[in-house]
Simulated scan of single mutants.
Amino acid sequence: MTLIYGHRGAKGEAPENTLASFQQCLEHGVRRCELDLHQSRDGELMVIHDPTLKRTTGHRGKVVEHDAAELVRYDARKGGPGWKTPCPIPRLAELFEQCPFEHWQLEVKSASKARAAQMAEAIAELTARHGLTDKVTVTSSSREVLSALKRLTPQLARGLVAEYAWLDPLKVAQHYGCSLLALNWTLCTPERLLKAQKAGLHVSVWTVNEPALMRRLADFGVDSLITDFPGLAVQTLGDA
């Protein structure tokens, strides 16, 4: 059975990477989610996709230039589907406390060696504190990040995010000891899927929003799909 992950919560239905978005995902009975992390200036893990604040909040500057206490006051509704009430940028800790997901894909974007190490250790510490070490997979397309995770926090499951096929995604995933391969759906051929699954990888495809495509990829046998519309995915594929 193909599992469903809500992309940044329920990005097509509520402002992405906000508490409202993750609650919306859970309301559909979808108990798996994907989200993006950046660190605040004072080292807290914040749930936001871009390294800058402009697109989702309208504020200037980078996430890393602001303390967490400032960031949680910024309304991240901009550019998303209409929403009546303010949706602050959440701390990851807040989501861990309020959202009972069965599994989390935590994506870390590219980072310097020092930043990658800091992020890996911060994620390991926070997930352990909340008893969620076994319920997260930290994903990245960055070799620096995957390398830091493998070296410093081997207790955390790792996943490769693969957007392009110019390097064999399967080889890269195996090199970093990944258990999950998050594939851009355009790269998901039946051959590549089968090969990855035979190598023991969970194959998660993104971002899948069309019912016909959901059905096709489920028929291929993908392990999970990541969608902006978890409610639609449940209707299309049956209960998650």
Score class of each variant (00 low, 15 high):
A120F: 04
L225M: 14
Q24T: 15
K11D: 11
L232G: 09
K135H: 15
E163F: 12
L71M: 08
V64Y: 09
H7G: 06
F229Y: 15
L26C: 05
V205F: 05
A199S: 15
G238E: 09
C87A: 15
L167S: 12
K78E: 13
A68R: 09
V64L: 13
K198S: 12
T18I: 03
G231E: 11
R8H: 03
Y74T: 05
H7R: 07
L37Y: 01
N209P: 04
I89F: 02
S204H: 15
E65S: 15
D42W: 07
R8C: 00
G82H: 08
T137K: 03
G6T: 05
Q197D: 10
S179A: 13
D168S: 13
A165V: 08
G80N: 00
V108T: 11
G9R: 03
V30I: 14
T236I: 10
V136T: 07
R60Y: 09
Q105Y: 14
A196Y: 11
N184W: 14
E34C: 06
D239W: 14
P81F: 03
S140V: 06
Q197R: 11
H66E: 05
A124Q: 10
Y74E: 01
K198I: 06
P154A: 12
T56D: 05
R55L: 07
A76N: 04
P15Y: 04
P211Y: 14
N209W: 09
N184S: 12
G80L: 00
H202I: 07
N17E: 01
M1K: 12
A117K: 11
L180M: 14
I4R: 01
A111W: 00
E94V: 13
L132C: 11
E210Y: 15
G61S: 10
L146W: 08
V145Q: 02
L194V: 10
V138H: 08
R143P: 11
A20M: 07
W104M: 08
H7T: 03
L37D: 04
L232Y: 08
L149T: 09
Q235S: 13
R192L: 15
A182M: 10
E144M: 13
M46K: 00
A117F: 07
R55V: 06
V208G: 01
S21H: 06
